[in-house]
Every structure is written in structure tokens, then in C-alpha cells.
Design a protein around this nucleic acid. Structure first.
Lengths: 241, 241
DNA sequence: GCAAAAGTGTTCTTCGTACACCCATGT
DNA sequence: ACATGGGTGTACGAAGAACACTTTTGC
């Protein structure tokens, strides 16, 4: 990234992605930790190529970090306050890591590029967490799934972005029937219910939930799933349509 | 605009505004016609100052064209396809108006600025059409309200923007209680109903509409409005809250 | 008194919620 | 047989749609 010509990208415009996954009854967000001293976490982000649509750019950024191509993706907000750059954080990062920045070939021009004020387009993505192999890029120390209730403090306004993304996900979940993107291809009704409960952070009555979902007529009922537990075996379902 | 230093603005990022007004039972959109040969209409738009938030920029652009400051404003979508610039239209504009462009001091550098690929943030605004005195800016030949059913063909993807803005308005109308921004301070129930009918392009049953609106508990009932017509005088209402 | 249009009330349906009951499964 | 958890059915109440009726106004 640093080595490419800055003219290859639109200046002062970036994309930040909130990547949602689901496991162990919790909604998770994929967050890289930056390879700098000082504990900086930042959402997966990137720039927009001159010949690239913003949706394409978002897909590219997501593929870099998750390895998967077909991802549910939705633009949810643009963040463009004049003060959002949070100069203090950047200054702290630079003062703590001057040597590393030089070592990576970041000349003053490149530094100027990344320290300028940015407007950022927020996208949220929904993925089957089992299909993702999180990949670091060159400026990551690590990349991990964090339960949304235990997110670290992110740089700039990235925590606010996650909150806004979750809000949008809740609004769209029923209307656009997108929740299935967070589950494996087949799932039980209970698993789907637990997903909803994780997203909305509240319980749903078991029987009414089942009725509501089946009345949507988007699920195909498959064979039963025998778990070995001492109870009736639940049906497996697949999203259809 | 042309004369200012291009570095005062974020490059390749613009704001386009869909300004909705309401009169004569029709939803209207404020659209300037560009002062160039060839009949070019474009949504009111502008750039984002380096020290300006995107919301501030949108307000500034709106105030320039409408003269009013307190406007309901909502970001609805970002348009950023790589091909959206519609180079053909720009080429036609330039080829038809080379002399004008020179006359206005548009040097080749400034031309490069406006002909590069742009990402644009879409905002829609709701205004009381009676409070607006449409103002041309330096590149407008005229600026007028057009019923949304009779819009001219706009440049680039601006017609698509209007469609998307309308879609968002419909989704938000009840939830955010924003329709009142399109009416004068006091109005009758019938006028409010006709506004809804214009926005959704479908009729509503009179009595149920009244019940639904009054049950929101956001309207204050004022004195009656005597029109001189041979029928019961309707109440005036004011939005409260 | 009458037509026109505003205001109000009543029923019916539909939807979501709450409660109850039955069924399969492995110990 | 029995505990466990999955599937289904019924009853209640709120919200919306369709209908009818009453009231006010100027001629």
C-alpha cells in the first residue's frame, strides 16, 4: 500500500468495514490490531482505486482480510466530521513508532497522505464465521474476532461506527432477510433464534419465533438433526430464495 | 468556486442534494438548469471544505440555493461507481461550451478537477416551499421547482439519486415524523393527508388516516379554519414536539 | 333544507403475544 | 417410565382496514 503511487487512489476518502460473524451465541466483529507500539485497534479499512467502484473496493478490502468473495455487504453511513481524524491519537502513534514508520519506507509524503483529514464510507458485512480465515495485512500485528460486547477501544470514531452498523443491521434484519448470511448453510430453529437474540440482545419466545420465521416462507425444512441428546431431534433448515 | 484554490476542498468527493418541497398536491424537487448550451440539468451540489464536516457542507450548499438555514437534512446514500462520471455527457458539455468555459476562467487544471471521477454523497432535504426563494449560483441559467413526476433528464446518475432519495423518504416518513417539514407551520388534516398521498403516490382512507396521525400524539389542535366553503370548517394543527 | 366535507364511532380482520399441550429421544 | 427439549395449537389483545353515521358550514 505504502509503496504504490498515491495517485492510484482517491485522496482523503476511505472505506471502513464492520465485519460481523456469529459464534457461541455471540455476535462478533473482526478487528485487526495494528503492528505499532501503543495498542491501536482499527477496523479493516482501505482506499478506493481510481478505476474502482466503492462497492468493489469494499469487496476487495473484505476479501483481503477474510479470504472470501461472496459476502453480504451494505453501505450504512458516511463519517465526515471535520474533527474525526482525532489528531491526538495519530500523533501518539507516530511519536511512539517513528522508527517503525521509517523502517517501512514511509516517507514524509506518505505520512502526509495518511495523516490528512479523511472522510470514510462505512460498510458492514455478514459472514459465516466458519468460512473465514482471518488474514493479517502488512500493518497488522494480529487480527481476531471479538464479541461485540467485549470490543477493545478502537481508534478515531471506529467504536461509533460499530454501534451505527449494529443499529442498521437490526433495522434491516427482518426486512431484507439477511440474518442467514451469519449462519452455516443448514441450521436449526434454535440456532437461528439464538442468533436473533444475540443481535437484538433480548430473548424471544420460542414458539412465536418459530411461527414468525416459518410464516416468511423462505426456509426449506430438511432432515432431522440427531445430536445424541435425550430429547426430540430438531429439524435442520436451509435458506431458500 | 472556480477561482478558489482546489486544495481548499477534498478532491474527487462531492455532495449532491435532493431538495423536496410540496405544493399543489405534488411533491417537488428543486433543480437548477446549468448555464451551458445543450440543456443540462444537475442537482444542487458542491464540495467539502478541508475544515468542514460533510453535514456542514451540505447545509452550506442548501443555504446557497434556498436562503434558509434550518433545514431537515438526511444522508441517504453514497454514489461511487467507477463509471458514474458519464464521460460522454461531460465531453458533450465541454465540446458545446468551450468558449464559455474559457470565458469563466476555467483553465486546464480546473477542468481536470471537475472532469475527474467523483464519489458523491447524497443528501435529501425537506423544506417549506413557501419559505424558499430559489437562488441561482454562478453556473446556473435558472433554478426551478419541478413536480417529481415531471423531472427533466438530469446529468450523470442524478435521476437515480432522486429515486433513491424518495425511497428513503418513504421509509423514514412515519418513523422519524419528518413530513411536517414540508408543510407550513399550521395545516389541516386534509392537507397533511394530501402530502402523504403525494409522497406515496397512493390514496389513504380519510378517517383511518386521521386516527393514525392523531394517535401519534404529536399534533396540537388549534382553532378552526373558515374557508368560506359550504361545509364544516376543518381544524388547524401544529406539529408539537 | 340541502349539498359538501369534516369529525367520530363500530365492526371485522390481522398480527403479535401469552399460555398450554403434545411429541420424540436417550438414559 | 421419565426428564429434556422440540413442535404445534388455541386464546387474548392491540393495531389496522372497511364500513357507517353524525356534525358543521354556506347557500
Amino acid at each position: 500500500m505504502y509503496s504504490r503511487n498515491e495517485q492510484d487512489y482517491i485522496q482523503q476518502l476511505s472505506i471502513d468495514c464492520v465485519i460481523f460473524g456469529y459464534r457461541e451465541k455471540q455476535l462478533n466483529v473482526l478487528v485487526p490490531k495494528m503492528d505499532f507500539r501503543g495498542d491501536f485497534w482499527a477496523l479493516p479499512s482501505g482506499y478506493i482505486g481510481q478505476d474502482e467502484g466503492i462497492g468493489q473496493a469494499a469487496r476487495r478490502i473484505l476479501e483481503e482480510r477474510t479470504g472470501i468473495q461472496t459476502i453480504y455487504l451494505d453501505q450504512f453511513c458516511v463519517f465526515g466530521d471535520a474533527e474525526r481524524s482525532n489528531a491526538q491519537v495519530l500523533e501518539r502513534l507516530i511519536s511512539l513508532n517513528g522508527d517503525k514508520l521509517v523502517e517501512r519506507g514511509l516517507n514524509s509524503k506518505a505520512l502526509e497522505w495518511i495523516t490528512r483529514r479523511f472522510v470514510s464510507i462505512g460498510y458492514y458485512a455478514l459472514v459465516d464465521i466458519n468460512k473465514v480465515i482471518p488474514r493479517k495485512n502488512e500493518i497488522d500485528e494480529s487480527i481476531e474476532w471479538y464479541p461485540i460486547t467485549q470490543l477493545p477501544t478502537l481508534i478515531m470514531d471506529h467504536n461509533e461506527m460499530v454501534a451505527k452498523a449494529l443499529e442498521t443491521l437490526r433495522l434491516n434484519l427482518d426486512q431484507k432477510l439477511i440474518g442467514f448470511n451469519l449462519l452455516p448453510e443448514t441450521f436449526t430453529m434454535k440456532e437461528l433464534q439464538e442468533l436473533y437474540e444475540a443481535i437484538f440482545d433480548k430473548p424471544f419466545p420460542r414458539n412465536n419465533f418459530q411461527k414468525k420465521i416459518l410464516d416468511l416462507n423462505v426456509l426449506e425444512r430438511l432432515e432431522k438433526k440427531f445430536t445424541g441428546a435425550a430429547n426430540k431431534a430438531p429439524y435442520l433448515y436451509r435458506f431458500q430464495q
